[in-house]
Design a binder for these strands. Structure first.
Length: 905
RNA sequence: GGGCGGAUAGCUCAGUUGGUGAGAGCAUCUCUCUUACACAGAGAAGGCCGCAGGUUCGAGUCCUGUUCCGCCCACCA
């Protein structure tokens, strides 16, 4: 006999690392682990996901478990379906974020990157990456991610750098990349340009400053102007009024004098000006405001840059040169007040642009930058979603996507950083020509001169991530991987990077490969704390996934995230939920222990049973039939839900089935059936088969506990002389076990389910009364039952009923009907059944009558409602099946009412 | 200014072709250490499904309007 000694509580701590190692070493994460199968079976359609590459030195937060759980779930599901399945892992160099980390470390040594120099700084960067780069992938492994680590990539590695270079050059040659001075969002702290997406606006209290723009003719007249940024007065090159504004019409074309500086600038007319706002006159600073820039272009105004890279005033600002922008604001305003130019200040709520990274105020500034002419790319990307080649889940994000692409502006791709892909363009000192090349050139392509210098800037991080789905598969080379696995299948990521990343991948994928990079985009929501607040260190509400995994196990965390989230919807997480799911993992474990233990008992007398010819014509018990039918229904539902990306609902249904039907009911009945020589074997077999299928269904959700338990089950069944045939075709690990196939329901199923459901109702009713009457749980009580048409069922199930309802089976009497109702008994009616519990001394006739009367009244109310319903339009307008169902309900209520009346009578 | 999402039990949330007695987990109350599990079992209580209209035989589910909360985009000084 086999002795199994599994711990009472699932030990995730020792299990998880062992199981993960087994998977990874076993090669199961690679598309074809079976040596007999070729890697690239042309007959099969592969399922492929590119991981959203985390920042190479980033810290693990709940966003990671979210996407890892979802993607691993899909990957495991498809792998179990036997599809060649590939999940490409990797990390992102994350330009600004990573560079900032290293600069911060340098600052502790009192150093800046400028002091170190570009080359030495980059060495530090790489050293940093080597030191911390492995942490995040180790943590992602801990989450159970079944990525193919042999294909791991990094956005700055040689292959991907070549892809970036190729992409840039192609766009350049096509004329889709250009360089020029433009007004861009400048981050003075980071000293780089950032894209529109990297600017966040926040409402903050500020002031609206009113002042006088004096006419230059010394007439003493002035135009009142209001501004929120007085320091930009130093860069003004015009004052604009509405052409039809009677207040200011006479000034149009005249000159006014810039306060303090005394420069003369024109008064211009432009329809852009809103007469209602402020004073109706607008100062124009083309060098530091996007709208003013536009107006300036229209009127041919000069552009002055009054701030430098660090947001200090330039020589344009005359006496204020060198001052910080905010110091200048104060100082200039004071000086203007002294000069009598100030009218007033008003409190005003500003929408302040801030850097998504550093948080400091973004300053619009003119600078020389590289741009991608995005319009043609955007058109193709719009088309791909419009015509359904790409589907976004949830669908409403398609609208958001359209809206963004339809109003897109050119993409500023250059960054004044050092950590990243350097712009592959060289400038010639001799002829001034520009050389853009796939490999570093030695000579100028125009004049052949050798005095060339590479552009100092690097590319926006998202430029390289935009290539991710194909660059990781070998592009620009036509590798076997690229041919077989591209386009990928699903892009799963957070909705917060729909524009940053998803849209750009689609644009670049279409541009460079002519194909969509994936056919489905699945967007998950953000993870928030249990009251829906954003997690942040300052709130102190951060849940650290590592701590959670330590305390509750990875499966609990994964299951919580998977079951608690709906696509595109933010989710609130709490330790309470994780704890509940830790309990579920333990439930799985213990149900498994029970099944395995039941085998051991069977093994002892197994051969005897086999010899006696039990295996022929096994008659399933009601419970066997019921659980099997319910399981088949579950398999069908789960399949449908997976196909429609409703993973959370699928998880909930498996949970519900496993706990409330399998563990709470079937296992309880099985305890009886295992004691009976007649049913022992089939019960063990049913337990094994149901558990097996449940573990397969659960595996994508909770891979560790299911793999571990399945291994134990497989071994135990394999060693069992009676049932070993059950595991003949089980593979060596659950991760590659075939996914349960849905089958159409068989004819007998509905009736068996209905019978068992009636039994459950009856048992619950008896338990309820026992609890109400405070009958000691251990006390076995007698019962009389009138079964009517269900008498045979009840007689057959007497053992189950007695055991689960706590009845004394020697005092359980089941007949079709009773002539007269027993005295001194509690009467219960469950559908067509009458039950009497003769609890001597515990019954109060008056209370009993009241209880029955109340039940009757409720039943009659139901009858009345249904009669009315069936008499109306419902009967001929609703589908027949629905009407039939209501008719049956009505009949059942009538039967119940009749019994109740008889008992009261 | 434009768009989107949420509002269902005390709390956090499910509820996807509208089908007619509204679900889960946690919390609460009562009982039980019954040989898988106290990270458990049995039972109970708890909900004009935001509000107002409409469509329909039938609405938590579809339409219109509305209130509150949140998010995204745009950026009128």
């Amino acid at each position: 006999m086999t002795s199994y000694d599994l711990p009472k509580t699932y030990d995730f701590k020792s299990t998880e690392p062992r199981v993960y190692e087994m998977w990874e070493k076993g090669g199961y994460f690679q598309p074809a682990n079976d040596p007999r199968k070729p890697d690239f079976d042309p007959a099969k359609k592969p399922f492929v996901i590119s991981i959203p590459p985390p920042n190479v030195t980033g810290e693990l937060h709940l966003g990671h478990p979210m996407f890892v759980s979802l993607e691993d779930l899909m990957i495991r599901y498809h792998r179990m379906k036997g599809e060649p399945t590939l999940w490409v892992p990797g990390t992102d160099h994350a330009g600004i974020a990573t560079q900032l980390q290293v600069e911060k470390a340098l600052a502790k040594e009192g150093l800046t990157r400028e002091q170190l120099g570009r080359e030495a700084f980059l060495q530090r960067m790489w050293a940093w990456k080597e030191k911390y780069g492995g942490i995040i992938t180790t943590q992602i492994r801990r989450l159970g991610a079944s990525c193919d680590w042999t294909r791991e990539r990094f956005t700055l590695d040689a292959g991907l750098s070549r892809a970036v270079r190729e992409a840039f050059v192609r766009l350049y040659e096509k004329g889709l990349i250009y360089r020029g001075p433009r007004l861009v969002n400048w981050s003075p702290g980071l000293k780089t340009a950032v894209s529109d997406l990297e600017v966040e606006y926040s409402e903050e209290p500020g002031k609206l400053y009113y002042f006088k723009y004096m006419l230059a003719d010394d007439s003493g007249e002035y135009i009142p102007v209001a501004t929120t940024r007085p320091e930009t007065i130093l860069g003004d090159t015009a004052v604009a009024v509405h052409p039809e504004d009677p207040r200011y019409q006479r000034y149009i074309g005249r000159q006014v004098r810039v306060p303090i500086l005394g420069r003369e600038i024109p008064v211009i007319a432009d329809e852009y000006v809103d007469r209602e706002f402020g004073t109706g006159a607008l100062k124009i600073t083309p060098g530091h405001d996007p709208n003013d820039y536009e107006i300036g272009q229209r009127h041919g105004l000069p552009v002055l840059s009054m701030l430098d890279r660090e947001a200090k005033v330039t020589e344009v600002g005359g006496p204020y040169a060198g001052l910080d922008r905010f110091v200048c604001r104060e100082k200039l305003w004071e000086d203007m007040r002294a000069a009598g130019l100030v009218i007033k200040e008003e409190p005003y709520t500003l929408n302040v642009p801030r850097s998504q990274r550093g948080g400091e105020i973004i300053e619009p500034m003119i600078s020389e930058q590289w741009f991608v002419k995005i319009e043609p790319l955007a058109q193709a990307a719009l088309e791909a979603v419009r015509d359904g080649r790409i589907r976004i889940i949830p669908e409403r994000f398609e609208k958001v996507y359209f809206n963004w692409l339809e109003n897109i502006k050119d993409w500023c791709i250059s960054r004044q950083l050092w950590w990243g892909h350097r712009i592959p363009v060289w400038y010639c000192d001799d002829c001034g020509g520009e050389t853009c090349a796939r490999t570093d050139p030695l000579l100028c392509a125009h004049c052949g001169g050798k005095h060339i210098r590479q552009d100092p800037d690097v590319l926006d991080t998202w430029f390289s991530s935009g290539l991710w789905p194909f660059s990781t598969l070998g592009w620009p080379d036509e590798t076997p991987d690229l041919r077989y696995f591209y386009p990928t299948s699903v892009m799963e990521t957070g909705y917060d990077i729909l524009f940053f990343w998803v849209a750009r991948m689609i644009m670049m994928g279409l541009e460079f490969t002519g194909q969509v990079p994936f056919h489905t985009v699945y967007l998950h929501g953000l993870v928030r704390d249990e009251h829906g607040r954003k997690m942040s260190k300052s709130y102190g509400n951060v849940i650290d996934p590592l701590v959670v995994m330590d305390e509750y196990g990875t499966d609990a965390l994964r299951f919580t995230l998977l079951v608690g989230s709906t696509p595109g919807q933010d989710m609130n997480i709490s330790l309470k939920k994780i704890e509940a799911n830790r309990n579920f993992a333990n439930k799985i474990w213990n149900a498994g222990r029970f099944v395995i233990a039941s085998l051991a008992a069977l093994g002892e007398d197994g051969p005897r049973t086999a010899v006696s010819g039990q295996q022929s014509a096994v008659r399933w018990t009601l419970a066997d039939s019921w659980i099997w039918a319910r399981l088949q229904q579950l398999v069908r539902d789960v399949e449908r839900l997976f196909q429609t990306y409703q993973f959370g609902e699928a998880g909930r249904q498996i949970y519900e089935f496993f706990w409330s039907e399998f563990a709470d009911w079937y296992v309880e009945v099985a305890k009886l059936q295992l004691q009976d020589e007649q049913t022992r074997r089939q019960t063990a077999e049913t337990l094994v088969r149901v558990l097996d299928i449940c573990l397969r269904l659960l595996h994508p959700f909770t891979p560790f506990v299911t793999e571990e338990l399945w291994g134990h089950l497989r071994r135990a069944v394999g060693q069992n002389p009676v049932l070993s045939h059950l595991v003949k075709d089980w593979p060596e690990a659950l991760i590659i076990a075939p996914w349960p196939e849905p089958r159409d329901p068989e004819g007998w199923e509905a009736a068996k389910v209905a019978d068992f459901t009636l039994l459950q109702e009856m048992i619950r009713t008896i338990r309820n009364v026992r609890a109400e009457k405070k009958v000691a749980p251990a006390r076995r009580i007698p019962a009389l039952m009138a079964g009517g048409a269900k008498t045979a069922l009840l007689q057959e199930q007497a053992g189950v009923i007695a055991a689960l309802a706590g009845l004394d089976s020697s005092a359980l009497e089941i007949r079709p009907a009773f002539e007269s109702k027993p005295e001194q008994a509690i009467a219960l009616v469950v559908g067509p059944l009458e039950i009497y519990l003769p609890l001597a001394g515990m019954t109060d006739p008056e209370a009993e009558r009241a209880r029955l009367a109340k039940e009757l009244a409720e039943t009659e109310a139901h009858i009345e409602r249904l009669e009315k319903l069936l008499a109306g339009d419902f009967a001929h307008k609703a589908p027949p099946a629905v009407v039939q169902r209501e008719r049956e309900k009505l009949a059942a209520y009538r039967e119940t009412a009749e019994k109740l009346r008889a008992q009261l009578g």
